[in-house]
Design a protein around this nucleic acid. Structure first.
Length: 502
RNA sequence: GGUCCAUUCGUCUAGUGGCUAGGACGUCAGGUUUUCAUCCUGGUAACAGGGGUUCGAUUCCCCUAUGGACUACCA
């Protein structure tokens, strides 16, 4: 079996969409699974769409996701350079090869002229296709005499090099995910391979580079499926064996129709990009939102692929082990932000209290709280299972750090009875007498006091919760009061009695 | 409009020429709990429609519908 070599080839035109991350991930999994080589190639042949910072963003995203490349602009390798603008000098000779072998020709039609023709056809309800049907009537090296078009060349008139698509031929192509596809060349056009600005188009650069870099499998988004017949034809014209192809299904909007876009994220409140994008129209990222990259990757892996078992939580190594292109689905997947959260919840549960305490300490530091790590470990242990993100811990524990400023009126109505004030007043000395303010000590003291007085446990505990927390929520009461300490507990009871009590 | 691709619970999906069509997320109900949440148990819910082929189709074929991608000197 020949060496497996795959590539991820994004364009630096803005932040990398999570669909792109998934494409990179599947390439990575495939390469690792088959002990192959993964290449990062930057496809920046369209200089008009180049965006500053995008290339770096791609690298940072890959790094955060744990996707490591074997060859690329940072890693180096024997097939470089790995940025297409740095390979510019290569492409012209390949376009010429196609011209010399009669598979391509020069075309002088201006974009405006072609636009005009397209509009005209559209008005007549027809589709303008630059192909065998019309190329004789347009301005190119087929329709013009050798003298004429050479004169244009000499005069420096702008031109492109187009692929000469056969008039009427059924092309059979194979895709690992879609199977066998047949397309007639009559519906295809003479695609531009080489632009008038001296740069190749995607179609030429992609094929030349994939060939030169000895790519064995092209794994890319479904948006390329319509170009597959063209790519097969170009490989054939060069006399090269094409790689195997796998076209991945698209990521769709959670609601409504169409593919996932930045707008959906803004509208529904979830990120569509791995990292925060700080330029121009800013965009939020999964990293900044508090996702663990492992959870993000796990979630993305299961969107369009499944292992055929009921396992859902996968480490990267497990993904590599289980992955195969055959188990990638054919249809587009709607993105589900709820499930994404669930994945993060699962990963957060697997963290140790120490890890979470360290992470939460960073969060607290920003709020101006400095807490001993051992106490934080206890704290996160109390609320860990109820949160999906580290930042959620704060919402669950804010009352550990500060006394309530107001008391939930609904809760007062429900839990503050005639004798509540008197009972809580009695509780103060009981707590005061607890020497070691631990959970078991406070619990046993309070419970025996309740029993001896014949009070209702629920009533006492809820009232206590109300003055300590401010509302009816949170972990076990004894965990809370033990953590905040005797002094603070009594202070809060007194304050509660003063504000609520009569 | 043209070309190509797709279609199983609301969502991600498993699956088979004969199954009570399975799991997960969500949702609903019950239980546990001093509260809330978690958690546990249970429920809800799907083979787009119509023709074939077949003893029998969710599964194979065709058509329709719907959705999507592409249709640039963008990738």
């Amino acid at each position: 079996m020949p060496q497996v070599r795959v590539r991820f080839a994004p364009s630096p035109t803005g932040p990398l969409h999570i669909g792109g991350v998934r494409t990179a991930l599947y390439n990575y999994l495939f390469a690792r699974k088959l002990k192959g080589t993964l290449i990062l190639r930057i496809e920046d042949t369209d200089q008009t769409r180049f965006v500053e910072g995008a290339e770096e963003y791609i690298m940072d995203s890959m790094k955060w996701c744990g996707l490591v490349f074997d060859e690329g602009i940072n890693e180096g390798g024997n097939c470089g350079p790995y940025r297409q603008t740095d390979r510019k000098h290569l492409y012209r000779q390949y376009a010429d090869m196609l011209f010399d072998s009669g598979h391509a020709y020069y075309a002088f039609d201006s974009p405006e002229e072609l636009d005009e023709l397209r509009k005209k056809s559209e008005k007549e309800g027809k589709t303008f296709i630059y192909n065998a049907g019309v190329r004789e009537k347009l301005s190119n090296s087929i329709s013009l005499s050798d003298v004429e078009w050479n004169a244009k060349l000499d005069r420096g008139e702008p031109y492109v090099i187009r692929f000469m698509m056969p008039h009427d031929e059924d092309i059979h192509v194979d895709d690992i995910i879609r199977g066998h596809i047949v397309v007639n060349t009559g519906t295809l056009d003479d695609k531009v391979l080489f632009k008038s600005d001296g740069m190749p188009t995607y179609h030429l650069a992609n094929i030349v580079d994939d060939h030169l870099m000895e790519i064995s499998h092209v794994i890319r988004g479904e948006e390329w499926l319509p170009s597959l017949p063209l790519h097969f034809m170009v490989y054939r014209a060069f006399g090269w064996n094409p790689p195997a192809f796998a076209h991945l299904p698209l990521l769709l909007k959670p609601d409504g129709k169409g593919k996932l876009s930045k707008r959906d994220g803004d509208k529904l409140g979830f990120p569509v990009f791995p990292l925060f994008w700080p330029y121009g129209e800013k965009a939020r990222g999964y990293r900044e939102e508090g996702y663990y990259s492992e959870a993000f990757i796990n979630m993305l892996a299961l969107l369009g692929w499944n292992p055929g078992t009921e396992q859902e939580i996968f480490s990267m190594d497990e993904l590599i082990d289980a992955f195969s292109l055959e188990r990638v689905g054919k249809s587009g997947s709607r993105f589900d932000p709820e499930k994404a959260k669930w994945f993060n919840h699962q990963y957060l549960q697997k963290r140790t209290n120490n890890q979470l305490a360290l992470e939460f300490r960073e969060f607290l530091r920003a709020k101006g709280y400095h807490v001993d790590i051992v106490r934080l470990e206890m704290l996160v242990g109390l609320v860990k299972e109820r949160v999906s993100f580290v930042k959620d811990i704060w919402e669950q524990t804010d009352f550990f750090f500060k006394a309530p400023e107001e008391y939930d009126p609904e809760a007062i109505k429900k839990r503050w009875q005639e004798n509540t004030s008197a009972v809580l007043k009695e509780l103060i000395p009981v707590l005061h007498d607890v020497a070691d303010f631990t959970v078991p000590a406070t619990e046993s003291a309070v419970k025996s006091w309740i029993e001896s007085k014949g009070y209702n446990t629920g009533a006492v505990m809820n009232a206590l919760r109300l003055v300590i927390v401010g509302t009816l929520r949170g972990p076990q009461m004894f965990d809370i009061i033990s953590w905040i300490g005797k002094e603070e507990t009594i202070k809060r009871i007194e304050k509660g009695l003063f504000v609520i009590g009569k």
